[in-house]
């Protein structure tokens, strides 16, 4: 057992963890941030993607103790209270969601991409989500949605 402190979605947590506990287990089993999904357990599908200090990571490939002192964003922390993040709004409007299991990871990969590159090309969007597998949507509407979200974010930036 080990005690670590970390920040999740803007809140501080101090938790007891086992040395071999993965970040995904801490998030899901211990803290019940169940929006983070496990699809393969070996960093191939991207369903467990979270943002750690601004970078996307597969939370199944990170041990919980490695998150000590870090800032984590999960899908639960993407929107602003009840208001949807422009990426979430665009995903809904463009029909980018089907079964939904890959969607939390997709939204976080999209966020990390747009945070760094506010106006990506379609091909850059495809690259940005190439670590996230989806079996339902064929990705095209997800690409449309991220493209639209980048425009929403630009408009938001202009009105601020």
């Amino acid at each position: 057992m080990k005690k670590i402190a970390l920040n999740i979605n803007g809140e501080e947590y101090v938790v007891d963890i086992n040395e071999d506990m993965r970040l995904i287990d801490l998030l899901r089993d211990k803290l019940h941030f169940t929006g983070t999904k496990e699809g393969c357990g070996e960093g191939e599908c991207g369903a467990c993607t979270v943002i750690m200090d601004g970078e996307t990571v597969n939370s199944c490939m990170v041990l919980a103790f490695q998150a000590e002192g870090r800032e984590i964003i999960t899908i639960e922390g993407v929107g602003n209270g009840e208001a949807l993040h422009p990426i979430q709004k665009a995903f809904l409007e463009e029909g980018a969601v089907q079964c939904g299991f890959c969607i939390p990871g997709m939204v976080l990969s999209a966020k990390a991409l747009l945070d760094k590159k506010p106006a990506p090309t379609r091909n850059e969007i495809r690259e940005g989500i190439s670590g996230n597998l989806c079996r339902c949507t064929g990705y095209n509407k997800i690409v449309d949605a991220i493209d639209k979200a980048s425009k929403y974010l630009k408009e938001e930036g202009e009105t601020k």
Partner: peptide, 17 residues
Amino acid sequence: DRFTSYLIPTALDMPDI
């Protein structure tokens, strides 16, 4: 029997339709 060897299309494999 895993996604490292059983390859399914990624966003980069799909064309616009």
